[in-house]
């Protein structure tokens, strides 16, 4: 291990790694082990784990490969946040500890545990397959390799950031929907789907989109932005998710699926009243039959508890609705202009 001048000057800091342990062969449930080492400035979490494995406890298990932030192997939760161990500085993490001097290291969430910090990536690969996360080229087989598609810089820019994704699954681990529903498509797969859908070389845009608007698909996202906040490559994942939704509304129509209808109902209410008309929202999203079948018991309970939302005629427009409507119209106009611009390209 190398040291530098500044490390000598600034010395070392003692740090305890509180690491999640679980070996399915012997442990009935997970536990934590503490490893205390001294770390100089510039040392990453991964180098510390390597040190612990080599010198303290060889049974500690985690994945690591390139150690340079490009292969995506060492995704794990450090102090509660999903990230790459190889690009996380120990001294930075020491400033974020809940308990002073103790860095918690845990496996990614929402993927099946295998051992210690290692989780099963297969569910993610399966979803990539289900949502056709590949370019299905429009180049005829006989022409392959003979000529190039001509791609504009503007088109390249549309998917440039998205192709930075290294599938480290930090977003998967942070996603609040996945924690409730393991079948949810997941942010990484939405990002990849978006990247394929805006690629002019691809010929299965409609098939992919049809899959994305189904249950557990793009409409299930609740805009919590956790995926984007935790992305180790700073990819604007939410923009990709919004783009898929806009694409779905535009190319499949606003009455396509319950997700699209829900979004449309939202827009309608906001434009008219500046707030939601909650009483009819489920009906407009999923229809009368579904609502009666699924929400009637809850509606009864709400009546008993006097928690029912006001009936539509009683929902008054929000204060300053006129100014708001003007703003709303202006925004809608902007969005339209942007669309026209991108279509011209």
């Amino acid at each position: 291990m190398t040291e530098t001048i500044d490390q000598h000057q600034e010395g070392k800091r003692d740090v305890t790694f509180r690491v999640f342990r679980f070996n399915p062969q012997v442990d009935s449930k997970p536990y934590f082990d503490d490893y205390t080492i001294s770390a100089e400035r510039g040392i990453t979490v991964l180098r510390s784990l390597n040190y612990i494995k080599e010198h303290v406890d060889a049974t500690l298990s985690f994945r690591a490969f390139c150690q340079a932030g490009i292969c995506g192997s060492c995704g794990m939760r450090v102090n509660g946040i999903s990230k790459l161990a190889c690009t996380s500085q120990v001294w930075d993490e020491l400033d974020k500890c809940r308990e002073p001097g103790i860095i918690r290291v845990e496996p990614l969430r929402s993927l099946p545990m295998i051992k210690d910090l290692i989780v099963d990536m297969d569910p993610l690969v399966d979803k990539m397959t289900r949502y056709s996360n590949w370019v299905d080229s429009t180049m005829p087989l006989a022409e392959m390799g003979k000529k190039e598609f001509l791609i504009s810089e503007e088109e390249f820019q549309q998917y440039d950031k998205a192709t930075d994704c290294i599938l480290c699954a930090s977003c998967v681990s942070e996603c609040s929907i996945l924690r409730a529903n393991k079948e949810y498509v997941s942010p990484a797969v939405l990002l990849k789907s978006y990247r394929m859908n805006v690629d002019s070389r691809d010929g299965i845009h409609d098939i992919r989109l049809a899959e994305l608007v189904k249950d557990h698909g793009v409409w299930d996202c609740t805009h919590c932005y956790r995926c984007q906040e935790s992305c180790v490559k700073s990819i604007p994942i939410m923009e990709a998710i919004h783009a898929i939704r806009e694409d779905a509304l535009e190319s499949r129509g606003p009455r396509d699926t319950s997700g699209a209808k829900h979004a449309e109902a939202f827009m309608e209410d906001i434009e008219k009243k500046g707030k939601l008309v909650e009483a009819t929202l489920p009906i407009r999203t999923n229809g009368v039959v579904w609502t009666l079948r699924n929400l009637l018991p809850m509606a009864m309970k709400m009546i008993v508890k006097r928690r029912t939302p006001p009936p539509p005629p009683l929902v008054k427009s929000a204060k300053g609705i006129k100014v708001f409507r003007a703003m709303f119209r202006e925004m809608t106009e902007h969005v339209k202009q942007d669309h026209l611009k991108s279509q011209k390209k």
């Binding site: 080229s137 810089e153 998917y159």
Partner: peptide
């Protein structure tokens, strides 16, 4: 290189 381009590699332009 063209074949890779044809099947989706995002080359700079």
């Amino acid at each position: 290189i063209r074949e890779l381009e044809n099947i989706g590699t995002p080359w700079s332009r």
